[in-house]
Structures are given as C-alpha cells and as structure tokens.
Simulated scan of single mutants.
Amino acid sequence: MDTSTLIGGRFKPKDGPTSGAMGDVWTAEDVRLGRTVAVKFLAQRRLMQQGAPTEFAETTARMFEREARAMARVNHSRVATLYDSGEHDGDFYIVMEYVEGKSLAEHLRTGPRLPLERTVRWARQICEGLEAAHTAKVIHRDIKPDNIMITQQGDVKLVDFGLAFLADVTQTHTVAGTPLYKAPERWHGETGSERSDLYSVGCVLYEMLTGHPPFGSAHDDPMTVGRMHQDDTPAPPSAHRPGIPAQLDTLVRTLLAKDPADRPKNAHTTAHAVGELLHVLDATEDTTGRAELPDTPGSNTGLSKRIEALDLRIFELEILHDRSDQPVIEARTEHAELTGQSGDTRGAAALYDRLARDCQDFFGPYDVRTLDAFEGLARWNGKAQRSDRC
C-alpha cells in the first residue's frame, strides 16, 4: 500500500502492518480529528488464486463485512469502537479505536500469575462487554485471550468480531472458532448463542486462574480438544491453585456446563455474580472463602455448615436466575433464618434488611414477599435488642 496517500481522505498510515489470516492492521492518524486509530484491511489480494476469488476468499470477505456490521451495533466502553469503513485502492477497510495496551494472551504468556482480584475484575469487564454485544443481538463466537485487550489503564476491551453472528439477521452459517475456547454445542455444528459466549468466558477465566485452558493445549489435535469439551469435566481451579474461594469454583463450573441451559442465564447475571466475588475477595484477603461465623451462645457446627452451604447455593442460584426469581428469594429467606437460629440475631436482621429492600425494588412495597422480609427484619431486630438488654 502507498503510505503517502490518505486512506479515505483522512487516515494517514503510521506503523504497520500487523498481518493476520483475514487482513492487515495499520496504525494510522486521523488527520481530521488528530487521534490515533487502527485501520484493518481485508487481505483480498492474498486470498486470490490465479486471479479468481477462492471459496475461502469469499467467506473471509463476508466475515470482514460482518465484523464491521457487528462492531457498528455495539457502543460500550468494554468494546473497541468502530469509527468508519470504506474502500481504498480496491481494498475494503474498517477504522477502529486504537487500543493502547496488550492482549490478555500476552499477559498470560509473559507476566506473573494474575492475582485473584485482577482476574475477577477483568472477568466482570469481559461480561460487561458481552452484555452490551448481546443486547445489540451480536454473538461474538470467538472469545479468547487474543481477542481481549487490556488497556494501559488496566481495563478490558473486546476486539475482533470477525466470527460474530447477528442474531436478528439471516446469514451464512459457520462453525468456525478457536478450539480451546469453543462451546460443546458448537462442536455439534450449532451456530451458537449468548450462552456459547459465556462458555468461552469460562474457559478464559479458568486459564486466568490456573495458567492453562480447561481442555488441551495449542499443540493438541483440534478434534481431540473438541471431544474433551463435549465429554470431559475439568478439575476445579482450586485443585490447581489453593486459596481460590468456593464461589469462584462454582462460577467456573456453571460457565463450563455442557448443556447451555445449565449455564448462567445471560452476561448480565454473570457480571453481577462476578461483582459479588470481588466483595468475597475483599472480605477474605484472597484466602479460602468467606469468614466463619463468630462463636455465639446459640451457634453450633451443624448450623454453620448449613449456612456455609446455603451461602454457596445462593451464589449459584443468582448466576442461573434473575435475583427476583422465587428460588433466590426462598434461599435468601432460609439463609437469614438459619443465621438467626445460629445465635447471630444482628446478622439475621441485616440479611432480612437487604432482602426487604431488594424485594421492595423488585415487587413493590405491598407485595407479600416484601412484607414477609420486613416482618423478618422486625422480628430478628427485636430479638437482638432484647439480647442487648440482658
């Protein structure tokens, strides 16, 4: 390419290109707005054989067009922004936000093991980006460390929507994807869904926690890796890295469920669950889970274990359901009651207080679930006050 001419009359090539299977990416200056951008060209000439388009070239051209359409739909701080598209000297190009930083793959390959807090924070940001894409009816279908950029400020940007599926548009079917992160149903030939993206998030999260994907390696035969995704169950991350909270093991197990129906409901619920994990890590200072209940006159080991198990169950339910769904409300009510029965009356009142406020937001002030939660708050608060007077 002649770097002395402006691309589209405004983009001046600077550094590059970085070449990939689909095209070349140049760093360029937007002379009109004075900012650095990334310009991605379709490598059309490389994809020609004897002057005629090959089937692969035609497929790649459709993927390139789809990438532009997918990125144009999504406007979110966790997704690289599309600025422009056009044709230059017979080659198609798209102009994207230039993300200054390194890919997650580079961080995993060259850096020390990621701290749990950073792992969880980045996982939440990945889900936030996917939530925006899914809301725009865009299924990414190639979530992997190479397609997750980490900015110099330490934040996530999702890139490379070349395999994206537009859920509301009829388009050519493709089962392409990266074997190490590809959901089981996609190995069966299915197009993929929001929950397929979440399975890929589970693979990425597993690798961030342990240093390797849940199944296979880059050197393994793709079909062998595919059979592992369909048939095998990986060891929990804590088996490879002591100190991982049980909630994090639960999240990974749920994301990696073979049946899409057993995975989190959507990216929004997953982002919320991951956000809750940040509170767990803050409370435990990166150790083994939530703190034990304090010894109180009415406490016993059996109740403590039931409360601990129920705490984990609530976390799992909030991944699989909306927080307003009845199974979540019932489990939180039982959790508050058991906490009070253990002797922690103030803890029970605090749990009921949070539940009552949530129910008020979900269902309104006069719903029976809201009134029941406020009744529980008053009952355990009264017991706590009587205990203080004794």
Score class of each variant (00 low, 15 high):
Pro294Val: 02
Ile307Asn: 06
Ser19Lys: 10
Asp155Ser: 13
Ala271Gly: 05
Leu317Glu: 00
Phe215Glu: 09
Gln125Arg: 09
Leu47Tyr: 03
Arg313Asn: 10
Arg306Lys: 15
Tyr98Ile: 09
Asp325Asn: 03
His268Tyr: 08
Gly51Met: 07
Ser324Glu: 12
His268Ile: 13
Ala176Asp: 06
Leu355Val: 06
Leu277Ile: 08
Val280Asp: 00
Asp168Pro: 07
Ala356His: 11
Pro237Gln: 01
Thr135Asn: 15
Gly154Leu: 02
Ala331Pro: 02
Pro53Arg: 07
Lys265Trp: 12
Pro145Tyr: 04
Met96His: 05
Phe363Val: 03
Leu163Trp: 01
Ala218Thr: 07
Ala246Pro: 01
Ser196Val: 03
Phe215Asn: 08
Ala349Asn: 06
His279Leu: 13
Asp295Ile: 14
Val225Ala: 11
Ala123Cys: 15
Thr284Ala: 12
Arg78Gln: 13
Gln230Ser: 03
Val201Met: 13
Asp325Gln: 03
Asp361Asn: 10
Gly16Ile: 01
Val156Ser: 11
Leu281Lys: 00
Leu209Asp: 05
Phe56Gly: 01
Pro245Asn: 04
Gly243Trp: 06
Ala384Cys: 11
His335Arg: 14
His134Trp: 12
Cys390Gln: 10
Ala68Thr: 08
Glu318Lys: 13
Ala373Gln: 02
Arg263Lys: 08
Leu277Val: 05
Met228Trp: 04
Gln171Ser: 06
His212Ser: 12
Arg121Thr: 15
Phe56Pro: 01
His76Trp: 04
Asp322Lys: 08
Ser387Thr: 10
Gly51Phe: 08
His173Pro: 12
Glu87Cys: 11
Leu303Pro: 03
Gln152Ile: 12
Asp155Pro: 00
Tyr93Pro: 02
Lys137Asn: 14
His272Thr: 13
Arg32His: 02
Ser193Asn: 06
Val280Ile: 09
Ala235Gln: 02
Trp187Met: 02
Pro237His: 00
Ala28Lys: 08
Leu255Ile: 01
Thr110Ser: 14
Arg313Val: 05
Thr233Ile: 09
Glu106Asp: 13
Asp197Trp: 03
Met22Val: 07
Ile150Ser: 07
His229Phe: 09
Phe56Met: 04
Gly382Asn: 15
Val368Ala: 15
Val138Thr: 03
Thr174His: 07
Tyr366Met: 14
Trp187Ala: 02
Met22Ile: 08
Arg195Gly: 07
His173Met: 14
Arg124His: 09
Leu256Gln: 02
Gln50Cys: 00
Ile139Tyr: 14
His219Leu: 13
Asn75Gln: 15
Ala105Asn: 12
Glu67Pro: 02
Arg241Pro: 04
Gln125Ile: 09
Pro112Gln: 05
Asp249Ala: 03
Ala235Trp: 00
Ser19Val: 11
Glu194Ser: 08
Arg227Lys: 11
Val328Thr: 05
Leu209Met: 09
Arg290Phe: 13
Ile94Phe: 00
Glu334Val: 00
Gly8Trp: 13
Ala348Ser: 09
Ser193Ala: 01
Leu371Pro: 10
Gly162Pro: 04
Thr287Lys: 10
Gly101Ile: 10
Asp388Ser: 11
Arg332Gly: 03
Tyr352Val: 10
Glu276Ser: 02
Asp15Pro: 00
Ser196Met: 10
His140Pro: 05
Ala348Val: 05
Leu198Trp: 03
